[in-house]
Amino acid sequence: MTQTQSDEIMKSRPRYGVLSYRPGSTHFIVADGEGGEAVQSLFAQAPEIATTAHIVYIPGANGTDLSAALETLGAAVFRKAPSYGAARQRIQKVLGDAHMGLQLYAAGTEGLIGQVQRDAVEAGLPHDALQTEQRGSLARRVQCVHCKGITENVTTDPFVCSHCGLNLFVRDHYSRRLAAFQGVCIDAEDPGEVPPAVERFK
């Protein structure tokens, strides 16, 4: 599996790098799905990271689960979580307790990276403190501009808002604050005329 390349360069969309070891007192790593492979590469680069590493891993919505492999990396703390929402309070606590020398890494889907970035900024860390690597599914987190509800793991365009049920198309407009793309009603002008959903974000 190679790094994910985004399909187009969009100005409001973040650019991602490759995780690389930076010396630090502790290493906090959050990953989902194929992002686990980026974590494995990070440990292969610098095995000494293990004794001060804290990993939170969330299996992918597409079924990818690398938790068994990650557990064998020997991190000081390894935590498997069922969703970002379930792990969020833990992540916020670690970020809030952060001391000088904390290194922060996020790898996997754009939705995961965006949420770690948002929570890091909210915890007062500078926005460039986080190293990111996009891997695996291009599924998007999308906020419905009408009801404001966020639908996770959107792979098709259009899709149905999981909150209000409107048919939404995914606009190429990304908010770091919300860690989400914008979804806009596709049949507003001609209610009911919804083009077939196409898998755009596999």
Partner: peptide, 16 residues
């Protein structure tokens, strides 16, 4: 949408 764009940089909010 202000609610969506708030916090963005100049190029980010003009992206569409």
């Amino acid at each position: 949408s202000l609610d969506f764009d708030i916090g963005m940089s100049f190029h980010e909010w003009h992206a569409p």
